[in-house]
Design a binder for these strands. Structure first.
Length: 460
DNA sequence: TATGCCGGGGT
DNA sequence: ACCCCGGCATA
C-alpha cells in the first residue's frame, strides 16, 4: 500500500484493500500494490522511468495516440513485454501500451489534461468530472468485484487493444474475501448501514461517482449475503425496490430507506431502549425487497399454490446481518425461492405470523441466508405501492395489537380462536428471541425476553 | 426436556 | 421503571 504523504480520503476496508489518494494529484495507488508483479520501477522509454508502483509515487501518465494525449494511471508494468497497463478513466477502460508510448505526466499536467479537457473524447460529453472522483469511483467499482482493479465496464475493456496475457494477472478471485467482503459501494445512504443496492452488480462509474462517499469511514465490512446472491442475474424486467418492515405482523412496505427506518423507529421501536439500541434495531427490522413483476396477469393466487407460482417474485437482501451476530454463515449460494417452500435447512428460521388476516397467499422470502420470513400479500396484483393495505397498520409494544378491524372482509378466512381470556396464553408459533438468537446471545434478546416476559419482538 | 412467560420479588 | 427468577404450561 501507499505510504508516506498519501492521504486516504476515502476508501474501504475490505479484505485489507484500501485505496489511497494523494492530495492534490490525480494519482492513485493500485489497490493492491503488493499483488502486482512489478513493484519495481517502470522502465520503458527513457524518461518514463520515474514511476514506481507501490511506493506512493505518481502514477499519472499521458498516453498518446490518434494525435491526442489521454490521461491515465499506470496500474501495472510488465518488464518482459515492456508494456504498461493503464487505467484511462476518461475512456473508462484499461488499456495496455508500450511503455514508450506512455509518458509521465506531472500532477499538474495530468490535472490540466483532464480538467481543461484537451480535446479528449468523452463518453459523457458534459460531465466535467474531477479526476479524483472518477478514478476513485472506478477503482472502488472494480474493487467491489475483485480485490484487484479490473476492467470496469465489460464492454469497454474489450474494445481496446488486446492486452498481453498478463493483463488478467491481477484477477485472482479472492476466495478468502468472498464470504466477508463488503458489497454495496457508494450509495447515498452512508450514515447508517443500509441494505445493499438491489442491483447487486457493481455500479458503473457514472453512477458511482455521482455520489462518492463523503468520508473515510466508508467501510462495508462483512456482508456475506450478497456476494453469493445469485438472484440479480436473472432480474430483467421491471424490478422495484422497496423496503419492507420485518416487524412481525407488520410488513409495511415503503419506498425509501428513510421512510422505512422512520416507520420502524416510530411505530415499533418508539419507546424502547436508548437511541443507540434503537438505531441497531431499526436497521434490523427492515429489509430490502425487490419485487419483480412478471407478465403473469393472474392475480387471484390460490392459497395452495402460491409458493409454486406466485405472480410476484420477491427477492431481497438483508437489512443488516451483523446485527444478528450470527456466526459466519455457511453460505447457501443458490437458494432460489422455490427451494424454500419445502424444507428449509435447519440453520434457517421462520418468522411466521398466524393472524387470521395473514392466511393469505404467503410467500417465503429469504431475509438472509439465515432468515426467512413469510409475508403475505393481500393483493397479488402488479401494482405494488398499494400492496396489502391491511398490513400497513402499525403496532407497538405497548399495545398488543387488538385484532384490527378488518376493512376487507374477504380477507378474513378462518379465525383461529384467539387466546381464551383467563387462561394462560398459548404458546405462539413464532420463535422467540431465545430460539432465534440463542442463549449465548442473550444480549440481543428483546428486553421482555430477557426478563422472561412475553416476547415483544416476535409477537405471535 | 426445552421453551415461553406469568407472577412475584428485588433494586 | 428496570431487572431477575421460580415455577408452571406447553410443545
Amino acid at each position: 500500500f501507499c505510504r508516506g504523504p498519501a492521504l486516504a480520503f476515502w476508501g474501504r476496508r475490505r479484505a485489507g484493500a484500501r485505496v489511497l489518494f494523494h492530495r492534490g494529484t490525480a494519482a492513485t495507488s493500485p489497490p493492491r500494490a503488493a499483488s502486482f508483479p512489478s513493484c519495481c520501477p517502470l522502465y520503458g522509454s527513457p524518461g518514463a522511468v520515474r514511476f514506481l508502483l507501490g511506493d506512493g509515487a505518481d502514477f499519472g501518465v499521458l498516453v498518446a495516440y490518434s494525435g491526442q494525449e489521454y490521461a491515465g494511471l499506470v496500474e501495472q508494468h510488465d518488464p518482459p513485454s515492456d508494456k504498461v497497463k493503464v487505467l484511462q478513466p476518461e475512456q473508462g477502460l484499461h488499456a495496455c501500451w508500450r511503455a514508450r508510448d506512455v509518458r509521465p505526466a506531472a500532477a499538474e499536467a495530468l490535472r490540466r489534461s483532464v480538467s481543461s479537457s484537451i480535446d479528449v473524447p468523452r463518453r459523457k460529453d458534459d460531465a466535467a468530472v474531477e479526476m479524483d472522483e472518477m478514478v476513485a469511483a472506478m477503482v472502488l467499482t472494480s474493487l467491489s468485484c475483485s480485490p484487484v482493479v479490473q476492467s470496469p465496464p465489460a464492454s469497454d475493456s474489450a474494445s481496446r487493444a488486446a492486452c498481453d496475457p498478463w493483463k488478467e494477472s491481477g484477477d485472482v478471485s479472492d476466495s478468502g474475501s468472498s464470504t466477508t467482503s463488503g458489497h454495496w459501494s457508494g450509495g447515498s445512504d452512508i450514515s447508517t448501514p443500509s441494505p445493499p443496492h438491489p442491483e447487486g452488480s457493481p455500479k458503473h462509474s457514472s453512477e458511482a461517482l455521482s455520489s462518492p462517499p463523503a468520508d473515510d469511514g466508508f467501510e462495508t465490512d462483512s456482508d456475506p449475503f450478497l456476494l453469493d446472491e445469485p438472484a440479480p442475474r436473472k432480474r430483467k424486467n421491471s424490478v422495484k425496490v422497496m423496503y419492507k418492515c420485518l416487524w412481525p405482523s407488520c410488513g409495511k412496505v415503503l419506498r425509501s430507506i428513510v421512510g422505512i427506518k422512520r416507520h420502524v423507529r416510530t411505530q415499533h421501536l418508539g419507546d424502547s431502549a436508548d437511541s443507540d439500541q434503537r438505531k441497531r434495531e431499526e436497521d434490523f427490522y427492515y429489509t430490502e425487497v425487490q419485487v419483480k413483476e412478471e407478465p403473469a396477469p393472474e392475480a387471484a393466487a390460490s392459497p395452495t399454490s402460491v409458493s409454486a407460482s406466485a405472480p410476484i417474485v420477491i427477492q431481497q437482501a438483508l437489512a443488516k446481518p451483523e446485527a444478528l451476530l450470527l456466526e459466519p454463515p455457511a453460505l447457501e449460494p443458490a437458494l432460489g425461492s422455490s427451494a424454500l417452500s419445502q424444507s428449509a435447512p435447519s440453520s434457517f428460521w421462520h418468522i411466521q405470523a398466524d393472524h387470521a388476516y395473514q392466511a393469505l397467499p404467503s410467500i417465503q422470502i429469504p431475509v438472509s441466508p439465515h432468515i426467512f420470513t413469510s409475508i403475505s400479500w393481500a393483493t397479488a396484483t402488479s401494482t405494488l405501492p398499494s400492496l396489502s393495505p391491511v398490513r400497513s397498520r402499525s403496532l407497538s409494544f405497548s399495545e398488543p395489537q387488538p385484532p384490527t378491524p378488518m376493512l376487507k372482509s374477504h380477507l378474513i378466512v378462518a379465525s383461529p380462536p384467539r387466546v381464551p381470556l383467563g387462561t394462560r396464553k398459548v404458546r405462539g408459533e413464532a420463535k422467540k428471541c431465545r430460539k432465534v438468537y440463542g442463549i449465548e446471545h442473550r444480549d440481543q434478546w428483546c428486553t421482555a425476553c430477557r426478563w422472561k416476559k412475553a416476547c415483544q419482538r416476535f409477537l405471535d
